[in-house]
Design a protein around this nucleic acid. Structure first.
Lengths: 103, 103, 103, 103
DNA sequence: ACCGTGGTTAGCTTTC
DNA sequence: GAAAGCTAACCACGGT
């Protein structure tokens, strides 16, 4: 339960420190690495957001061309369900095969 | 489409075929038991879903009375939460924040 | 209990005192209602938790009878997918009908 | 299984079948355009999914380096959060908590 | 223009 | 420790 040792990362064990600017660096070099991770994540999330906007735009364009966005969404969802269900069914089949000792 | 009825039980693991080959009744009595289990599960899940809807309705009612649902959720969560753990988590978070210079 | 209650409802989100007619209302009427909502929610959640335990027990019982829980889960999931997909398809059909002005 | 090809556009409002045999294309050229829209959407969604996986990987890497993913998530969320709003929410929460006597 | 609804996504829990 | 399933928060859309 109380594993919450106040330590940024186990890397600290090296005892080495590279106090950089910006980070108060309670945790030695770990602070810099943490910051790096966070920035990578934030960048990827920005890209993802951009993609979501692109998708919206396609729907908007489709709508402008006379299609019903809601319907398109449903079609896309159903096609996805087909794929997923097929995969699930295949997994189930594998499960069955192991259940009867076919593997 | 198929009914997705299945008969899988490791009871078969002995390897004996309890039915003649090409049996329609793959799994014998096990099939009936399995079906029973599945139906019990499905029924309980229906009840659970109904309960979740009830909870939603209470939130909706509270909202309609002028309360902020999101905050009520937080209060409920806090009441459920062990105080000590919460404090520890907050401390850890503070630490991280200083590590990346958020203060 | 604290005495610093002002107003519970969201009408005061602006920060103004919307307290009408001198109701001191420590915990006030709003506080009582809020508490009531919270308790209703907590009670429903207890029931839900109980149900979830029941479900687990069924899986455990099935397992004890020689069935593979994982497989049962898959079957339940697939049956649910069937239901959902059918509903989706029906909705899509409705959508189509409105798209061609059948309603 | 069917291809789930659909052709729904209000361009069809006349209700005439503009195609002869072969083409499913109840909506004339609209069918081709719709398909194009759907494919563009599906492609963008694939990219989005890939990005989501990348994000997961970064979290996994951070974890493997000794960081606590859960906390990183919180930090990212906090950085995204408008400070003022957060404070307001906290104040509101305090208010609620006093209302129900949690202090 | 706002509210309510539904769908999507992320986080948490539990399982293997 | 990894994977999956479940739950809850978020967001965008349509209705009023």
């Amino acid at each position: 339960m109380s594993e919450n040792v106040v330590n940024i990362a186990s890397q600290n064990e090296t005892g080495e420190e590279s106090q950089g600017e910006g980070t108060k660096d309670t945790g030695g070099v770990a602070g810099a690495r943490l910051k790096s991770f966070i920035e990578r994540i934030e960048r990827l999330e920005e890209e993802k957001t951009a993609l979501m906007e692109d998708i919206k735009e396609v729907y908007a364009e489709a709508k402008g061309t006379g299609f019903d966005a809601k319907t398109i969404r449903k079609v896309v969802a159903l096609r996805k369900m087909d794929t997923e269900k097929r995969q699930e069914a295949e997994q189930l089949l594998d499960l069955y095969k192991s259940a009867i000792g076919m593997y």
